[in-house]
Protein backbone atom coordinates (compact mmCIF):
# COMPACT_ATOMS: atom_id res chain seq x y z
CA UNK A 1 0.00 0.00 0.00
CA UNK A 2 3.00 2.24 -0.01
CA UNK A 3 2.85 2.75 -3.76
CA UNK A 4 1.56 6.14 -4.92
CA UNK A 5 -2.16 6.25 -5.39
CA UNK A 6 -3.52 5.88 -8.91
CA UNK A 7 -4.86 9.08 -10.46
CA UNK A 8 -8.50 8.04 -10.23
CA UNK A 9 -8.27 7.89 -6.43
CA UNK A 10 -10.30 10.57 -4.71
CA UNK A 11 -9.59 12.03 -1.32
CA UNK A 12 -12.03 9.50 0.18
CA UNK A 13 -10.15 6.68 -1.40
CA UNK A 14 -6.99 7.90 0.20
CA UNK A 15 -8.65 8.33 3.57
CA UNK A 16 -10.06 4.82 3.26
CA UNK A 17 -6.68 3.48 2.43
CA UNK A 18 -5.14 5.10 5.50
CA UNK A 19 -8.00 3.83 7.63
CA UNK A 20 -7.31 0.32 6.34
CA UNK A 21 -3.65 0.66 7.13
CA UNK A 22 -4.45 1.92 10.59
CA UNK A 23 -6.91 -0.93 11.25
CA UNK A 24 -4.45 -3.52 9.98
CA UNK A 25 -1.73 -2.27 12.28
CA UNK A 26 -4.11 -2.10 15.20
CA UNK A 27 -5.03 -5.75 14.65
CA UNK A 28 -1.38 -6.73 14.35
CA UNK A 29 -0.76 -4.88 17.60
CA UNK A 30 -3.62 -6.82 19.23
CA UNK A 31 -2.13 -10.07 17.98
CA UNK A 32 1.43 -9.58 19.05
CA UNK A 33 1.40 -7.35 22.14
CA UNK A 34 0.00 -9.88 24.61
CA UNK A 35 2.79 -12.24 23.67
CA UNK A 36 5.53 -9.63 23.83
CA UNK A 37 4.34 -8.26 27.18
CA UNK A 38 5.00 -11.56 28.92
CA UNK A 39 8.71 -11.48 28.19
CA UNK A 40 9.77 -8.48 30.33
CA UNK A 41 7.27 -9.45 33.03
CA UNK A 42 9.03 -12.76 33.48
CA UNK A 43 12.09 -10.86 34.72
CA UNK A 44 10.08 -9.14 37.44
CA UNK A 45 11.87 -9.12 40.76
CA UNK A 46 8.51 -8.99 42.58
CA UNK A 47 5.99 -11.82 42.67
CA UNK A 48 3.47 -9.91 40.56
CA UNK A 49 2.01 -10.22 37.09
CA UNK A 50 2.38 -6.55 36.30
CA UNK A 51 5.06 -3.92 35.72
CA UNK A 52 6.37 -2.44 38.94
CA UNK A 53 7.47 1.20 39.16
CA UNK A 54 11.10 0.12 39.05
CA UNK A 55 10.54 -1.86 35.87
CA UNK A 56 9.07 1.14 34.09
CA UNK A 57 12.05 3.30 35.05
CA UNK A 58 14.46 0.49 34.15
CA UNK A 59 16.03 0.12 37.55
CA UNK A 60 18.22 -2.96 37.38
CA UNK A 61 17.09 -4.04 40.86
CA UNK A 62 13.51 -4.38 39.61
CA UNK A 63 14.60 -7.12 37.27
CA UNK A 64 15.81 -10.56 38.22
CA UNK A 65 16.19 -14.10 37.02
CA UNK A 66 14.57 -15.53 40.14
CA UNK A 67 11.62 -17.08 38.30
CA UNK A 68 13.96 -18.86 35.92
CA UNK A 69 15.84 -20.20 38.93
CA UNK A 70 12.49 -21.29 40.33
CA UNK A 71 11.93 -23.52 37.29
CA UNK A 72 15.31 -25.15 37.50
CA UNK A 73 15.07 -25.81 41.23
CA UNK A 74 11.50 -27.11 41.26
CA UNK A 75 11.35 -30.88 40.74
CA UNK A 76 7.75 -30.64 39.52
CA UNK A 77 8.70 -28.31 36.66
CA UNK A 78 11.67 -30.44 35.74
CA UNK A 79 9.51 -33.54 35.69
CA UNK A 80 6.95 -31.71 33.58
CA UNK A 81 9.57 -30.61 31.06
CA UNK A 82 10.94 -34.11 30.79
CA UNK A 83 7.48 -35.63 30.41
CA UNK A 84 6.47 -33.15 27.72
CA UNK A 85 9.44 -34.19 25.64
CA UNK A 86 9.02 -37.92 26.21
CA UNK A 87 5.33 -37.93 25.39
CA UNK A 88 5.73 -35.50 22.51
CA UNK A 89 8.56 -37.49 20.99
CA UNK A 90 6.85 -40.89 21.01
CA UNK A 91 3.46 -39.50 20.03
CA UNK A 92 5.17 -37.81 17.07
CA UNK A 93 6.84 -41.03 15.97
CA UNK A 94 3.57 -42.96 16.08
CA UNK A 95 1.51 -40.24 14.40
CA UNK A 96 4.10 -39.57 11.70
CA UNK A 97 4.69 -43.21 10.79
CA UNK A 98 1.06 -44.21 10.61
CA UNK A 99 -0.07 -40.88 9.20
CA UNK A 100 2.48 -40.83 6.39
CA UNK A 101 1.65 -44.35 5.27
CA UNK A 102 -2.03 -43.57 5.31
CA UNK A 103 -1.56 -40.30 3.43
CA UNK A 104 0.30 -42.13 0.67
CA UNK A 105 -2.47 -44.70 0.47
CA UNK A 106 -5.15 -42.05 0.54
CA UNK A 107 -3.63 -40.03 -2.23
CA UNK A 108 -3.97 -43.00 -4.54
CA UNK A 109 -6.94 -42.51 -6.81
CA UNK A 110 -7.74 -46.17 -6.47
CA UNK A 111 -8.35 -45.86 -2.75
CA UNK A 112 -11.89 -46.99 -1.92
CA UNK A 113 -14.10 -44.90 0.41
CA UNK A 114 -11.47 -42.22 0.27
CA UNK A 115 -13.62 -39.30 1.30
CA UNK A 116 -15.19 -41.12 4.21
CA UNK A 117 -11.87 -42.39 5.53
CA UNK A 118 -10.33 -38.97 5.15
CA UNK A 119 -13.15 -37.38 7.13
CA UNK A 120 -12.75 -40.01 9.85
CA UNK A 121 -9.01 -39.64 10.10
CA UNK A 122 -9.20 -35.86 10.27
CA UNK A 123 -11.97 -35.81 12.86
CA UNK A 124 -9.68 -35.82 15.95
CA UNK A 125 -8.87 -32.28 14.90
CA UNK A 126 -12.50 -31.20 14.97
CA UNK A 127 -14.08 -33.10 17.85
CA UNK A 128 -13.84 -30.98 21.01
CA UNK A 129 -11.04 -32.10 23.27
CA UNK A 130 -13.32 -32.35 26.25
CA UNK A 131 -15.33 -35.05 24.49
CA UNK A 132 -12.21 -36.95 23.47
CA UNK A 133 -10.88 -36.60 27.01
CA UNK A 134 -14.07 -37.88 28.63
CA UNK A 135 -14.27 -40.82 26.24
CA UNK A 136 -10.62 -41.70 26.67
CA UNK A 137 -10.95 -41.47 30.44
CA UNK A 138 -13.76 -44.06 30.40
CA UNK A 139 -12.17 -46.29 27.78
CA UNK A 140 -8.52 -46.14 28.81
CA UNK A 141 -9.34 -46.69 32.48
CA UNK A 142 -10.76 -50.09 31.50
CA UNK A 143 -7.41 -51.10 30.03
CA UNK A 144 -5.27 -49.59 32.75
CA UNK A 145 -3.91 -47.03 30.26
CA UNK A 146 -5.07 -44.04 32.27
CA UNK A 147 -2.23 -42.60 34.28
CA UNK A 148 0.46 -44.18 32.11
CA UNK A 149 2.85 -42.87 29.51
CA UNK A 150 1.45 -45.34 26.99
CA UNK A 151 -2.07 -43.96 27.38
CA UNK A 152 -0.93 -40.38 26.86
CA UNK A 153 1.28 -41.27 23.92
CA UNK A 154 -1.59 -43.07 22.18
CA UNK A 155 -3.95 -40.20 22.94
CA UNK A 156 -1.58 -37.53 21.65
CA UNK A 157 -0.66 -39.58 18.59
CA UNK A 158 -4.35 -39.71 17.64
CA UNK A 159 -4.49 -35.91 17.88
CA UNK A 160 -1.37 -35.51 15.76
CA UNK A 161 -2.46 -37.79 12.93
CA UNK A 162 -4.66 -35.27 11.08
CA UNK A 163 -1.80 -32.80 10.78
CA UNK A 164 0.52 -35.38 9.29
CA UNK A 165 -2.13 -36.46 6.82
CA UNK A 166 -2.81 -32.88 5.75
CA UNK A 167 0.82 -31.90 5.26
CA UNK A 168 1.87 -35.12 3.56
CA UNK A 169 -1.19 -35.12 1.30
CA UNK A 170 -0.31 -31.55 0.33
CA UNK A 171 3.20 -32.52 -0.76
CA UNK A 172 1.80 -35.48 -2.64
CA UNK A 173 -0.75 -33.40 -4.50
CA UNK A 174 1.79 -32.44 -7.13
CA UNK A 175 3.38 -35.87 -7.23
CA UNK A 176 3.02 -38.03 -10.31
CA UNK A 177 1.67 -41.25 -8.91
CA UNK A 178 2.61 -43.29 -11.94
CA UNK A 179 6.21 -43.07 -10.74
CA UNK A 180 5.36 -45.12 -7.72
CA UNK A 181 3.27 -47.65 -9.56
CA UNK A 182 5.90 -47.81 -12.26
CA UNK A 183 8.34 -48.81 -9.59
CA UNK A 184 5.93 -51.42 -8.36
CA UNK A 185 5.21 -52.88 -11.75
CA UNK A 186 8.92 -53.09 -12.48
CA UNK A 187 9.03 -55.69 -9.76
CA UNK A 188 10.50 -53.63 -6.92
CA UNK A 189 8.99 -54.40 -3.53
CA UNK A 190 6.39 -51.88 -2.39
CA UNK A 191 8.56 -50.96 0.57
CA UNK A 192 11.66 -50.36 -1.53
CA UNK A 193 9.70 -48.35 -4.06
CA UNK A 194 8.25 -46.38 -1.26
CA UNK A 195 11.61 -45.50 0.25
CA UNK A 196 13.35 -44.87 -3.08
CA UNK A 197 10.66 -42.94 -4.88
CA UNK A 198 8.12 -41.54 -2.51
CA UNK A 199 10.05 -40.68 0.63
CA UNK A 200 12.44 -38.12 -0.89
CA UNK A 201 9.51 -36.29 -2.41
CA UNK A 202 7.33 -36.15 0.64
CA UNK A 203 10.11 -35.57 3.15
CA UNK A 204 9.36 -31.87 3.69
CA UNK A 205 5.69 -32.70 4.22
CA UNK A 206 6.57 -35.47 6.64
CA UNK A 207 8.88 -33.23 8.62
CA UNK A 208 6.40 -30.41 8.88
CA UNK A 209 3.65 -32.90 9.73
CA UNK A 210 5.88 -34.31 12.45
CA UNK A 211 6.47 -30.82 13.77
CA UNK A 212 2.75 -30.14 13.90
CA UNK A 213 2.21 -33.45 15.67
CA UNK A 214 4.92 -32.62 18.18
CA UNK A 215 3.60 -29.15 18.86
CA UNK A 216 0.08 -30.52 19.23
CA UNK A 217 1.26 -32.94 21.88
CA UNK A 218 3.57 -30.41 23.49
CA UNK A 219 0.77 -27.86 23.82
CA UNK A 220 -2.05 -30.23 24.74
CA UNK A 221 -3.51 -30.03 28.21
CA UNK A 222 -7.11 -31.26 28.25
CA UNK A 223 -6.29 -34.92 27.65
CA UNK A 224 -3.44 -34.66 30.11
CA UNK A 225 -5.81 -33.27 32.74
CA UNK A 226 -8.09 -36.27 32.38
CA UNK A 227 -5.65 -39.07 31.63
CA UNK A 228 -2.35 -38.31 33.32
CA UNK A 229 -1.40 -39.39 36.78
CA UNK A 230 0.72 -37.14 39.01
CA UNK A 231 3.83 -38.75 37.52
CA UNK A 232 2.91 -37.71 33.97
CA UNK A 233 2.34 -34.01 34.48
CA UNK A 234 3.48 -32.02 31.46
CA UNK A 235 4.44 -28.36 31.00
CA UNK A 236 0.94 -27.20 29.98
CA UNK A 237 -0.59 -29.25 32.79
CA UNK A 238 1.74 -27.61 35.27
CA UNK A 239 0.90 -24.18 33.84
CA UNK A 240 -2.81 -24.93 33.99
CA UNK A 241 -2.77 -25.84 37.65
CA UNK A 242 -0.46 -22.93 38.37
CA UNK A 243 -2.87 -20.50 36.71
CA UNK A 244 -5.81 -22.00 38.58
CA UNK A 245 -4.21 -22.17 41.98
CA UNK A 246 -1.19 -20.01 42.56
CA UNK A 247 -0.51 -17.39 39.97
CA UNK A 248 3.19 -16.88 40.16
CA UNK A 249 5.64 -15.39 37.70
CA UNK A 250 7.36 -18.76 37.26
CA UNK A 251 4.61 -19.40 34.75
CA UNK A 252 5.67 -16.26 32.90
CA UNK A 253 9.24 -17.51 32.79
CA UNK A 254 8.06 -20.82 31.37
CA UNK A 255 5.87 -18.95 28.93
CA UNK A 256 8.84 -16.90 27.76
CA UNK A 257 10.83 -20.07 27.16
CA UNK A 258 7.92 -21.51 25.20
CA UNK A 259 7.72 -18.39 23.07
CA UNK A 260 11.38 -18.93 22.19
CA UNK A 261 10.52 -22.50 21.20
CA UNK A 262 7.71 -21.24 18.96
CA UNK A 263 10.03 -18.78 17.29
CA UNK A 264 12.45 -21.61 16.57
CA UNK A 265 9.64 -23.71 15.15
CA UNK A 266 8.41 -20.89 12.99
CA UNK A 267 11.86 -20.37 11.53
CA UNK A 268 12.34 -24.09 10.85
CA UNK A 269 8.96 -24.38 9.23
CA UNK A 270 9.59 -21.40 6.98
CA UNK A 271 12.91 -22.90 5.99
CA UNK A 272 11.23 -26.22 5.17
CA UNK A 273 8.54 -24.52 3.13
CA UNK A 274 11.09 -22.71 1.02
CA UNK A 275 13.08 -25.88 0.55
CA UNK A 276 10.00 -27.84 -0.43
CA UNK A 277 9.04 -25.21 -2.97
CA UNK A 278 12.53 -25.26 -4.40
CA UNK A 279 12.66 -29.05 -4.51
CA UNK A 280 9.33 -29.35 -6.21
CA UNK A 281 10.37 -26.67 -8.64
CA UNK A 282 13.46 -28.72 -9.51
CA UNK A 283 11.60 -31.96 -9.52
CA UNK A 284 8.96 -30.94 -12.04
CA UNK A 285 10.94 -31.30 -15.30
CA UNK A 286 11.29 -35.06 -14.72
Amino acid sequence: MSQPFPSYYTLWHKAGSYALKFTAFAVLFFLIVPIIVIIPLSFNAEPYFTFTKGMVTFEPSAYSMRWYDAIVTNPNWLLAIKNSFIIGFFATIVATTLGTMAAVGLSSQRMPYKRLIMALLLSPMIVPLIIIAAGMFFFYSKFGFAGTYTGLIIAHAALGVPFVIITVTATLSGFDRSLYFAGLSMGASPLKTFFDVVVPLIRPGVISGAMFAFVTSFDEVVLVLFLAGPGQRTIPRQMFSGLREQINPTILAVATLLIMVSVAFLITLEFLRRRSERLRGLESPH
Binding site: N83, F85, I86, G229, P230, G231
Partner: peptide
Amino acid sequence: VTGAALGVMLASTAMAAELT
Protein backbone atom coordinates in the same frame (compact mmCIF):
# COMPACT_ATOMS: atom_id res chain seq x y z
CA VAL B 1 17.41 -38.32 19.06
CA THR B 2 15.82 -41.73 19.42
CA GLY B 3 18.71 -42.93 21.51
CA ALA B 4 18.58 -39.88 23.73
CA ALA B 5 14.85 -40.19 24.18
CA LEU B 6 15.06 -43.86 25.03
CA GLY B 7 17.76 -43.04 27.54
CA VAL B 8 15.57 -40.42 29.16
CA MET B 9 12.68 -42.86 29.16
CA LEU B 10 14.69 -45.56 30.89
CA ALA B 11 16.15 -43.13 33.36
CA SER B 12 12.68 -41.87 34.16
CA THR B 13 11.31 -45.32 34.95
CA ALA B 14 14.29 -45.95 37.18
CA MET B 15 13.64 -42.83 39.24
CA ALA B 16 9.86 -43.09 39.25
CA ALA B 17 8.32 -41.81 42.47
CA GLU B 18 7.49 -44.52 44.93
CA LEU B 19 4.69 -42.81 46.78
CA THR B 20 2.22 -40.16 45.68
